[in-house]
Design a protein around this nucleic acid. Structure first.
Length: 358
DNA sequence: CATACGTGGTT
DNA sequence: TAACCAAGTAT
């Protein structure tokens, strides 16, 4: 077994020299002087970073912080504006829960985030990972912060043979065994930095790792890339459907709002048929939301987490923007700022290449 | 415990 | 290029 006491000092020393800088972070030197990142910023960044890359998150984080500087501002915002600001980041339940969480903090906690893992865990959109991360980073709690990076580091450090997701409990216990009471927030961020820059999924740079002297997988000559062990994945089915992009004479595009639950919940869309597993290849101009001169203009493919979608796109142009109760005509000038998920932007761009240029 | 839930980048 | 991956959560 690795010497669990030796890990944290080595890792923190490495972090002091090699930490990455982000808008939501406080550098370790300032942390040592007692400065802490704002819980609101830590929480916002952690939610955005769930299953999402730092690069993708960066502009969204800055945008949210500008639009809503405090959690009370976010709590008071229009949900539709939050969805618009989140559009393109994916996993839209996060945006809905983000708003609910802000409201709960403002209403039930006087605008202050709970400072314990348990208190945080009870809020919408905050699970085991985020509760532990916010508790450690914002409130100096020695919680076991386990994300995908940490699972990878720990699985190699201790050469864990059990597969994910069954190994979750073991990873949590092992992480707790190396988490220090001093600087737990820096330790958590250091583990994640190590996982994303040194202990990478493929081609890890073990020669530069501050923990290589204690890493069981490294010391025993194991095939390091094969950790963590994972259960085999299921293959993605293909679903098909049709989308109808209607443009008025003034350039407005007809949009609808999807129901709050399920895929792309609460986001905007162009009228579409259901997405089925049907493979007969029929076109369905007759499934259009209203009568018009619908012209087929090709198809777009979009890959979701658990299926691929092939969307046949129909377009109609120069329509009279008659008022309808099942949607609205989004003006050309505001279309690019609408709450449109990427798949819908693809469909609109195929029908009218300049529509989203704005 | 398994499944639903986005998107864009990398290999 | 198909596969894999990225700071997970809710049900």
């Amino acid at each position: 077994m690795p010497d669990t006491r030796a890990v944290a000092p080595l890792l923190l020393s490495w972090y002091d020299r090699h930490h990455r800088s982000f808008p939501w972070r406080v550098p370790p030197a300032e942390g040592q002087r007692g400065l802490r990142a704002q819980p609101y910023h830590v929480w916002l960044s952690e939610v955005m970073l769930q299953q999402t890359t730092v690069q993708a998150v960066m502009p969204y984080f800055e945008r949210f912080r500008t639009l809503w500087p405090r959690v009370e501002d976010l709590a008071a915002a229009e949900t539709e504006d939050v969805m618009k600001a989140w559009a393109g980041l994916g996993y839209y339940a996060r945006a809905r829960n983000l708003k609910k969480c802000a409201e709960a903090v403002a209403r039930d906690h006087g605008g202050r985030f709970p400072d314990t893992e348990e208190g945080l865990r009870a809020l919408p959109g905050i699970g085991d990972y985020t509760a532990a991360a916010v508790a450690a980073i914002a409130f100096d709690r020695p919680s076991a912060v386990v994300d995908g990076n940490v699972e990878r580091v720990v699985s190699r450090l201790f050469r864990v043979e059990e597969s994910l997701p069954a190994a979750k409990r073991e990873f949590r216990a092992l992480t707790a065994s190396i988490t220090p009471k001093e600087r737990p927030g820096d330790f958590a961020q250091a583990m994640m930095d190590l996982g994303s820059t040194i202990c990478t999924p493929r081609r890890p740079v073990c020669a530069l790792c501050p923990l290589n002297g204690h890493c069981l997988a490294y010391r025993t000559g194991a095939e390091i890339e094969t950790y963590p062990r994972k259960a085999p994945k299921k293959e993605k089915p293909v679903r098909r459907g049709a989308a109808f992009v209607a443009r008025a004479a003034d350039g407005a595009i007809f949009l609808r709002r999807r129901i709050d639950s399920g895929l792309l919940g609460g986001m905007s869309e162009v009228p579409s048929t259901a997405w089925s597993a049907r493979t007969d290849g029929a076109t369905e101009a007759d499934a259009a939301p209203f009568a018009a001169d619908w012209q087929p203009c090709g198809s777009v493919t979009h890959v979701f987490t658990h299926f691929s979608l092939e969307l046949t796109v129909f377009a109609a142009d120069g329509l009279e923007a008659i008022r309808r109760n099942d949607g609205w005509w989004e003006p050309a000038t505001s279309l690019s700022g609408a709450a449109l998920p990427t798949v819908m932007k693809k469909a609109i761009a195929l029908a009218f290449p300049q529509a989203l240029a704005s």
